[in-house]
Design a binder for these strands. Sequence first.
DNA 1: CACAACCATAGGCGATGCCTTTGGTTCCTG
DNA 2: CAGGAACCAAAGGCATCGCCTATGGTTGTG
Lengths: 309, 309
Amino acid sequence: MVVSVLSLHQLTCFLATYEHGSLTAAAEELGYSQPSVSEQIRTLEKSLGVQLFRRVGRGVVPTTVADTLRPHAEQVLAAVDEAQQSVQEVKNFEKGTIRFGMFGIARLYGGSRLIADVLTRYPGVRVELIGQNSTEVFEDLRRGRLEAAMLAVSTVESEGMTVTPVAREELVYISADPDRTASPVTAHRLSTASLVMAETTYRAVDSTRITLRQMLHETGRNPPSRIEVEDIETAVELVGMGFADSVVPKGAAQQLLPRLAPNASWASLRPRVYDTFAVVHRSGAILSPAARLMIELATKRIQAIAEPL
Amino acid sequence: MVVSVLSLHQLTCFLATYEHGSLTAAAEELGYSQPSVSEQIRTLEKSLGVQLFRRVGRGVVPTTVADTLRPHAEQVLAAVDEAQQSVQEVKNFEKGTIRFGMFGIARLYGGSRLIADVLTRYPGVRVELIGQNSTEVFEDLRRGRLEAAMLAVSTVESEGMTVTPVAREELVYISADPDRTASPVTAHRLSTASLVMAETTYRAVDSTRITLRQMLHETGRNPPSRIEVEDIETAVELVGMGFADSVVPKGAAQQLLPRLAPNASWASLRPRVYDTFAVVHRSGAILSPAARLMIELATKRIQAIAEPL
DNA sequence: CACAACCATAGGCGATGCCTTTGGTTCCTG
DNA sequence: CAGGAACCAAAGGCATCGCCTATGGTTGTG
């Protein structure tokens, strides 16, 4: 890219001079002294290699080159104005994009209402709720592509990340067999169950599985998943068909069981086990107003469903 | 007009940084040191009141505000480029307007061929040949609206103007009566003639009349115009009809008599009297290339018809 | 765990921009 | 026609800006 030799200040002085036909008047309008404007014009003429004004005793008269330059100079300054204005509009949430990360099943925790919250307050903005899966969201945070996110985490310890828990959500056992949900499910019973688990692509980092692994650690076994699927709705449907049981967040169970597995029921684990919903961002980051807005709204929505911390 | 707080340099650094995702790489591209670019970005962020990049250990990542700013920044720099380019095009006679002053009857002295000369050499330019009348041209020169002109002058003395004669043109007596053009016309005969004179609106400053006044000064009489008209063609036609005689530049007589007054003929004055064609511009002016071009071409055309000096 | 990549900070230096003062020119007016 | 008013140019001084080098801190990688 060619580094331009002319400056916005020169163009401003040029336009003011053109319109007034006088360096003195231009200087007065711009709040500068007459020699300053004179110098700017001279510098501009020198760098362009052309004469822009004829000095004619009283006042100055634009040359035809100045006639040519004027509309271009106006366009430059107008573009600058637009640039500044558009940034301010983004700053004021009148326009622009607000990008925020959410855990994968945000749809079951008021994700659409969260977006509605934002759009109601700020009708002009675009909203991007990133949350295909927790791993990618975490990676986006780490790489700086995302500023902040609301995630389901199994631990608040994370290298270089600040994790602020805002709510906890019980993990419950669901089954089509009423006997198995008649009483709280112990680690031992869980370790012998036949389970269908969702989020198979990210099973290594899925917070539900990690939490279950911690629970089963004392039994010396891993969670015994018999079926692996991608999304929680499919898992619940399979539970309803009786192929397996599952462990899901309680809010998801309450929403999905009536719709997808009406014959199934749920029970707590013993001891109770919780997923944690937390605001996550890079340590040391100064959060933008947009991020703070999303954190505030998302926290409210989450705490209306899960248990506030 | 609001004086902008941001600079083209900042926008250039911003774009380079945006494209590379790195201050170091941007600095390398722009030929600056890394801290310089870093400072520009920081200043820009501060003046806009927003964060444009998140610093993420290795490299920087644009925020959504930066996404918004980018197209505007590009437009600003593109407009600057266009401005510079258009000025250069005017400088190189590829575009723009060339404005030049000419005496009123330039049409009889190759005016259209002069314009053809310019357009042949520089097909892209606009040409404005200003010359409704000498007074206004002179006023335009004085006020700086015109840079230079080719005028018919009665004297080379003029306050604040540099007058450079390039050719002289004899003033001749024309008449439909062959007797009156059988021999050179003396001042005495001229003072008793019945004349039709053109350029009546500007009769006070018309160079032909001024020249005649000087010639008649010794006789103590003013030029005896019986009829006053605006344009020389009408005057010649009236001469052809026998209503009056006239005094016109020789080139005009040679061109107009056969066409408009075939029965009329011309004779020299005694002593011979001349109009002077001269290049006129403000004293002390540094002439632009465009003006020099017009002066060169107009001089050639005039000298091909009138007598070079 | 050490190295490489990258950004931030600090200090120094030259250039830029602005100001005031002054001089010269043009134009108007008494 | 002479004096004054309006205006631009030039010069000198001062503060700020922009850029550089050197250095330190942090992150990601072999």
